[in-house]
Amino acid sequence: MRFIEIKNCYKVYKNGVAAIADLTLNINKGEFIFVIGASGSGKSTLIKMLYREEKPTKGTVEIGGINVGKLRNRTVYKLRRKLGIVFQDFKLLPKLTVYENVAFALECLGMKGSEIRPKVIKALDHVGLKDKIRSFPGELSGGEQQRVCIARAIVNNPKLLICDEPTGNLDPKTSKGIMEVLENINKELGTTIIMATHDKEIVNRMKKRVIVLEDGLLAEDHEKGSYKASESI
């Protein structure tokens, strides 16, 4: 079933830089996709267009039937509630505990405390951090912080999880752990995952669909692809 539909999409920034050119891409529900490419190839722009941080200059980006580019600033939050986003730099609030950081996402939506608690515990259980709920982000390792970030992203049961280089700051062993968490989420919850990455090893090992961007153009699109397919990067 088609979930994300990108049609003849262009993105030209105000300073004249063309980040994405004529991109057409379909993604099905439950897929796990890597987006790879050199710096400046348009990876981040593509990711940003998915959560409507950027609007396409031309063409359409549709997620679950919603034309994301047409959303007004005022109503973007409705889209974001259906997405989970994971960043390279975690974006955790240092003064809140692990539990509070994850609960924050639900509190913002006006949920009741008694409703929030089981969801947060479940999400933290998923990423294997149930025993650290009282710790502060500063007391955690990089990998653990990223797990908190993933827990926060999945706590509201999103249909789509967008990861922007989630392992960029982590060592290979920790990265492997994170990837296991993501794969679990993809399998058990059926969440569609789109992940931009630089990490060759991960891409090669996971054998998932790989999209290669080059200067904003879709260079390659392989089912069960690997980094080898694009040695030039």
Partner: peptide
């Protein structure tokens, strides 16, 4: 700032 950014990303409405 960071709090506001996270609020936006997890889907807080502008008013809230």
């Amino acid at each position: 700032r960071s709090e506001i950014e996270i609020m936006r990303l997890v889907g807080s409405s502008n008013t809230s």
